[in-house]
Amino acid sequence: MSNNWTLGKTAVVAALTGLSALGTMIIRVPIPVTNGYFNIGDVFVVLAGLWLGPVPGLIVGLVGPTVADAVGFPQFILATAIIKGLEGFVVGLIGRHRGIGVGRRVIAASVGGFIIVAGYFLFEAYIYPYLGSYVPFFKVTDIGGAIVEVPANIAQAVIAVAGGVALWRPLAGSARPDE
């Protein structure tokens, strides 16, 4: 752990992780065919990336939504951990620097949104069916189901981008917890 990682930063990362888990759990809209669900937990993953940088974004994305998936949808834990972790990391990597405009933050958040859509499609269309041929636990989706879920994932990504940037803006002027 680097020396400039303060206690305040840890506390904020833990709070965003908890909020991300709750955001994923509270508004869940089940999607037919794949048995997955639509949620708003990504808002906090994007916020963590934009506000705190790639490593906090990775932690929030990796832990928060994964904890939520453990309640009722355990088959998606693997996909969620990888996709949401990557989402937070990439958003933080592109949008972390101070002084860059809102436009670049929106681009960073949009790349995160693209990772959600592409990542879940990849997992549901190819990786899960492949794993399912060895472990029945993962046999929950196929390419048809993955295609059906794309519009819901796009809506989820749009909400994540809009919500994440909207929550980041009031925080942009304030000091970061590691400063």
Binding site: M1, W5, L7, T10, A11, V13, A14, T17, G18, L22
Partner: peptide
């Protein structure tokens, strides 16, 4: 030492989020 402190604080905040909700 530092890792323990940060881990303890993270757990404390995580549990606080659950209590708040």
């Amino acid at each position: 030492h530092r890792t323990k402190i940060h881990l303890a604080l993270a757990l404390r905040v995580f549990q606080h989020v659950g209590d708040v909700t």
